[in-house]
Design a binder for these strands. Structure first.
Lengths: 243, 243
DNA sequence: GTCAAATAGATTTTCGAAAATCTATTTGAT
DNA sequence: ATCAAATAGATTTTCGAAAATCTATTTGAC
């Protein structure tokens, strides 16, 4: 085998492919909140049969990105001010714990990973050059990686998987917000402060900065969610009327 | 329709049925940790076709009770000392937050529900009369309900669902422990103290009692897990060799 | 006209078999 | 005897269609 291709086997199961695409489409709000997910439509969209799609939807249902009503099918999970607030408050608590553990346990390896993640994030453009009303996929990845790196030394796979699930949920709200207002916030400085405090093992400061970071996102997203609601009513999007 | 039957419609989807049975069988360790879950075998066990079973397994995989390896099928999630410790430490942190919120927000309704849940728990026999090496299903339900009632006023569906997912995971370890030692612990008093402190809004005391409650379970379960491991090697159970 | 029952179309759910993949064993060259 | 390629059986994954369920509309009795 050519060494350049190495392990890029792409031998992904159709089910895994459906799962990844669906998750990505939902988080980026290419599939809008509350939008019905008809198996037939998804079959065409992703070019595969029934089974892998239904199986992927079931996994996403367990993760909370999709809702299932017996014999009535699937839809993208609803969003609301109340859910957003609950989500962000929970995120703060979870990340607070994970951060405390990580700052206590993190070694040189962790420090290096964090620096590396920050560097990659800071060099990545946030805006998608093609579509200014969306965040660049590359930036999203680096951003997620950075926040994962912050807590990666916490030593608890349980807390880490909970954290990343809540982070994903939040990303969906951010995407929604971007769609209505465009990406304004430049948060390189914010992330840098967060990293500095973490590397200095200033536990309380790091936790507080993280709380502020999340709260600021909450405020911004919450505002545009409220505005968007009254303007266009979220149930009408992409020219289609949903449920 | 006969009024006595009323809404007991039992019109459950096969998929939901598979999900409930599988989850219950896994938590009670009727399907042992690490045991391979062949679709063919489960099809006979639950008397249904491929699809509902695979869909249920996918949901359980997202919940962490089942593990999936691409093109190699499903198995019941592994257990280990490390995972147990991580799980219980995380549980303590999550429940601490949920308890704090619940004690701050809980009203009369919550107090009444908690009292009611405790009463039902205290009147339910823990041991299954038929099989003394297993906990009675009825007791398990009341026990789960009691702990859910404690935090039910926390106001965060996110934290509540995280909490109950971790609780379920822990139940599996408890079941494993019971199988090797038999149910000894009488924890009515423990639960009563917990409830009293909660109703008195003694936040710190409640949190501390809860920590002790979980830690005690951890110690017991951890001990018998270590013992069982050296005695019988967990991979051989029910006369079948797994893996 | 009003309301419940009947009907038709759309959608979800389930099945059984075909296709793809994996695992263990055998084969055959060195 | 050793090792890689070939083979066969078991298992997972996927498909396409049948069955069950839901939704909206029509029908018909009062």
């Amino acid at each position: 085998m050519p060494p350049s291709l190495a392990k890029s086997d792409s031998a992904q199961t159709l089910n895994a492919s459906a799962f990844n695409q669906l998750r990505s489409d939902i988080i980026a709000c290419r599939l809008m909140p509350n939008e019905r997910l008809r198996v037939e439509a998804l079959r065409e969209r992703y070019e595969m049969g029934n089974s892998p799609i239904r199986e992927a939807l079931m996994r996403l249902e367990a993760e909370g990105l999709v809702e299932l009503e017996q014999n009535k099918g699937f839809k993208v999970s609803e969003v609301s001010q109340e859910k957003l607030l609950d989500l962000m408050q929970s995120r703060i608590e979870i990340e607070t714990i994970a951060l405390r553990w990580a700052l206590e346990k993190g070694g040189v390896e962790w420090e290096a990973d964090l620096l590396s993640a920050f560097h990659r994030l800071s060099r990545q453009a946030k805006v998608d050059p093609l579509n200014p009303r969306a965040i660049s996929a590359a930036w999203s990845k680096e951003h997620a990686d950075f926040h994962a790196a912050l807590v990666s030394a916490c030593g608890s796979s349980t807390m880490m998987s909970i954290r990343s699930r809540l982070f994903e949920q939040a990303e969906r709200y951010v995407a929604l917000s971007i769609m209505s207002t465009g990406p304004l916030r430049d948060d390189v400085t914010e992330h840098k402060q967060l990293m500095r405090a973490a590397l200095n093992r200033e536990i309380d400061k790091t936790i507080e900065l993280n709380r502020i970071h999340i709260t600021r996102t909450l405020d911004k997203v919450s505002g545009s969610l409220a505005a968007g609601k009254s303007q266009t009513d979220l149930r009408i999007v992409n020219g289609k009327t949903l449920k």
